[in-house]
Amino acid sequence: MSKKIVVYNNVERFFHYHLVHLVAFLTISGLPVLSHTFDFIAYGLGIPVAALTNSQNILSAGMSALRFIHYSSAFLLTLLSVPFVFMIVRKIAHLSMWPDRWGVQATIDGFKEMWKFYIKQEHVRFGKMNAGQKLFAQIVVITMIVLAISGYMLIFRESISSDLATYARAAHAISFIIFGMMLIIHLYLAVHPTNKNSYDAMFHTGTMDEDFIKEHHGIYYDKLKKENKI
C-alpha cells in the first residue's frame, strides 16, 4: 500500500473548517445590506426576532440580528486567523500559492495545463496547486485583507472621516463581490469528482497517497523528494 503523505496540517484544516462556517455566516448576513434582492434573508430571520423582541418592523429586526451575526462572525474570524497568520508568515516564502515559475509564459503554460486537465482530461504534472488555484488563493488573500480592513473601518467609522468611511463601504462591497465570484468557482471545483482526493484530505484525513501525488501533482512530488519529505 502506498504511503500517506500529510498535505494539510492540523492548523490548516482547523482554520479552513471553521472558515467555511464563518464565511457562510458573513456572506448570508452581509448580502441583504449589499442588495435588496436578498431582503428575504432579513425577512426570514426578522419574523422570529420581531416576535421575540416585540419589534414592529420585521425587516429592521432581521437586519439588526444579521448585523449582530456579521459583527460576531467577523470577530471570531479575526481571532481564528491569528494562529493561522502566524503559521503562514513563518513559511511565507514557501507557500504553495506562489508560482513555481514566474513570468508571462509560465502563466500561459500553467493555464494550458489546466485546460488539458479540466477540458481534455489529459494527464498533467501539477504542483500542490495548479495555476488557477494559485491565482484563486492570491485573489482570495487580497480580497480578505481588504474585507477585514474596510470592515473594521466601518465598525469604527466614528473614528475616521466620513469620506474614508465611504471609501471603506465601497471597498468592502467591491472586494466581497470579487471574493464571492471566486468562492463559487472554488465551491464547484472543491466538490468536483476529479478533486475528491483534495476534498478528503482537507476535510477528513489531511493526507494523500504518495502514488496519487506522484501521478497528479508531479511537481509537488519532486519538491517533496528534494526536501527529503518522502
Binding site: L34, T166, A170, A173
Partner: peptide
C-alpha cells in the same frame, strides 16, 4: 465616484456570478 463604482461592480458581480454558475 466610489459609490458609483460600487453599483457598477454589483451589476458586473450579478452577471458574473450567473455566468460562473452556468459555466460550472
Amino acid at each position: 465616484l466610489v459609490m458609483s463604482a460600487r453599483e457598477a461592480v454589483k451589476v458586473v458581480g450579478s452577471v458574473g456570478s450567473v455566468a460562473i454558475v452556468a459555466g460550472s
